[in-house]
Amino acid sequence: MADASLRPAEYLGFRDAAAAILGRHSGAKALDAFGFTDVYADGAGDLRPAYAFLEAQGSSCVSTPALGLLALAGIGVDPLAPDGGAPLFGAPVGRSSLVAVPGMTPEDRVVVDRPGAGLVAIGDPSAARRTPPAPVADDYLTVLDVDGAECRVVVAEEEAGALREGIVVRTQLGAAAELLGLTDRLLQDAAGYAGQRAQFGRTLSSFQAMQHLLAWAATERHQLACLLDIAVARSANGPVDPQLARAVKAMAGRVFHAVAQTAIQVTGAISFTWEHSLNRPHQRGMALDQLAGSSADLVVAIGRQARTEGVVPELFTLADGAAGP
């Protein structure tokens, strides 16, 4: 999107650096090249580079375990992982007891949140893995059914309570950043296609109907970028309001679906093929929307809170000074 002058320059610098790395590497290699774990080596103070990395990961549709690491950032690796590298967080999906782990490899260890018990490590994550009966378009998220799995408490409930909010906020903002990247990818590809594909002797993009479809998609995407930027800037100065993170995640899901529908409409029947470049980012975004609260569920929760409390949340103030570049 041609909005480089509108968004925070430092954040875009991180994002573009990440994009260059993700053009060459995936998985742990990409994280190492970016210095991803250095971002929160001294705690979870300024996670802007991590969110920028995830946005770049979305637009490149590369898989890394960044989102699973980010969720546990600042919690302290040692008590969680006495016997190896940092574990990944398995985020709840939908309303089920399933969890999804981003960018998981067979060697990774996984921690999930079990309210009442605390943060628990799954004994054998691979054994808890759901095995799809058919090939999947995108294997970024590994779904685990951890009911009945052998677990070890790594952070007791008494301490987990204080960590829970931060885990949810980081997961929601990280997933939202990635959804924004995916949204950008779909929008750019659709606009590019409309500029090339000719019908009736003209490019699709010359038809006002097509222009307006894409303009609405860009408008949806613009509001998400604005709100995400505010939340990310806030994250550099202290804890992010959970209501703000929830709104960003809910908006990210809704915007993603709206832009994906536009991209499919503009691209036409070819987009409904397995191998089309739109298919994988579309299915990845669908899955990410389910992580840490789906947009459908979060929207209802937002409405319920506004109704029962009689308060429409402001989410941020102008005094936050976080809105501009």
Binding site: L6, H222, Q223, L224, C226, L227, D229, I230, A247, A250, M251, R254, L298, V299, V300, A301, I302, G303, R304, A306, R307, V312, P313, E314, L315, F316, L318, G321, A323, G324, P325
Partner: peptide, 25 residues
């Protein structure tokens, strides 16, 4: 009305965020 109200609250958040960016600029 919760779903529809939540959707409008989110739309309002989008207007607010986009306006704040423009004011800052």
């Amino acid at each position: 009305s919760d779903r529809q109200l939540g959707a409008v609250v989110l739309q309002l958040a989008g207007v607010r965020a986009a306006a704040a960016r423009l004011l800052s600029r």
